[in-house]
Simulated assay, not measured.
Amino acid sequence: MSQLNKQNQLSPLTDTPRFKAVLLGEGGVGKSSLFLRIKDNVFGETLQPTIGIESCSKSLYVGGEKVLFQIWDTSGVEKFQSLTRSYYRNTQVVLLVYSVQDSTSLQLLTRWIKDADDHAPNAMRFLIGNKCDLEKSLSDQSVNNFAAMHECVNVFSTSAKTGEGIDRALVKITEKLLNSYQGPFMMESPFLCDSTETYEDSISLTKSNKNSGKKDKSCCF
């Protein structure tokens, strides 16, 4: 991850680590539901598709260390894709979201990976299999193969409906970031829409010392 260190040459804004993550994927995979679960810890049965950009800030406490995580929800509708490209600036994390019950949604992530390659080439990639409360149509092996092919750091299973797996994913992602970036930090993007409301909340997560700093042998959880 030597390319990641290039972004650390910026002047520091704060000693508190700040990271920006963007949710990418096709419409209908549950990105906005994941966003709402992280933001307000609720599930909306009748969410309308996101048009444009929404963002929220979440303070994570991992092993007693505070990390500010800014999460951006981008529209999966193709005609709005060009609108989102300027918002990749200062992104450290790309969250590639697919639905575990829709194999097509996994394959269609390749277009978003291409977009991330063009606009956030140094960002860490994580593969998120959402809707794990439903029956899977994809084998773990096929998902792992896709993740390896596209250099995803980890694969996570989540359910925006029940909240399953989301906190685990956040703490693992944060651990990877803290192991890869060394302070001082200047990670918060200056790009915000006038219509974007930034929400800050706190959750306390316990950092696991097991295999800390080592690459996971298996990417499924």
Rank of each mutant, 00 (worst) to 15 (best):
N90E: 12
K79P: 10
L95A: 10
C56W: 00
F43N: 06
E175H: 03
S11L: 15
D133N: 08
F35N: 06
E197H: 10
S195K: 05
D140C: 03
Q141I: 09
R111S: 15
K131A: 05
P184L: 02
S57H: 03
E164I: 05
E26A: 14
E188D: 10
D117T: 05
C193F: 03
N90F: 10
A123H: 01
C220E: 11
P190C: 07
L127N: 01
L106Y: 03
K114I: 05
G52I: 01
Q3N: 12
N8H: 08
T46Y: 09
L4Y: 05
F126K: 00
Q48P: 13
K66P: 15
Y61M: 12
K66T: 12
G76N: 02
V155K: 07
Q9C: 06
T14D: 14
L4V: 06
P12Q: 00
T174D: 07
E197K: 11
N8M: 10
H119R: 06
L47A: 15
L108W: 00
L23E: 05
S59A: 15
M149T: 15
L178V: 03
T50L: 03
V155Y: 08
K58S: 07
Y181T: 02
N154W: 09
D115I: 04
F146R: 12
N209Q: 11
P121L: 03
L83C: 07
L60E: 00
D115E: 15
F191R: 06
G27Y: 02
E151K: 15
F35L: 09
L10G: 08
G129M: 05
V155R: 07
E65A: 08
M149Y: 11
V171W: 02
G213D: 10
K214Y: 14
D201T: 10
D73R: 02
A120R: 10
C132N: 09
K79T: 13
A21H: 01
S82Y: 06
D117P: 06
L170F: 08
E175R: 08
M186P: 06
Q107E: 13
S57F: 04
L83P: 08
Q101R: 04
T196G: 06
V93C: 05
Y98F: 15
D40T: 13
S55R: 04
S208W: 02
N90L: 14
L68K: 04
K131N: 12
D118E: 12
T46V: 11
M149L: 14
I53D: 05
F19L: 01
A148H: 15
G64C: 04
R125H: 12
K79V: 10
T91I: 09
A147F: 13
G76M: 07
L106D: 04
G63H: 04
R18T: 11
L23Q: 00
P121E: 10
P17Q: 01
L205G: 06
K66V: 14
G129C: 13
A148G: 09
L205P: 14
P17A: 04
S59E: 12
D133F: 08
G28L: 08
R111V: 11
S103R: 10
G163S: 12
T84A: 12
K172Q: 12
Q81P: 04
F221M: 11
S137W: 04
S195P: 08
I71D: 09
E164D: 09
C56N: 03
E197L: 10
K58G: 07
A116D: 00
L47E: 11
E200Y: 02
C56Y: 01
N211A: 11
L205I: 15
V29H: 10
V42I: 15
D194T: 10
S2P: 11
C219D: 12
G25F: 01
E78C: 13
C220N: 13
S32W: 02
S55G: 06
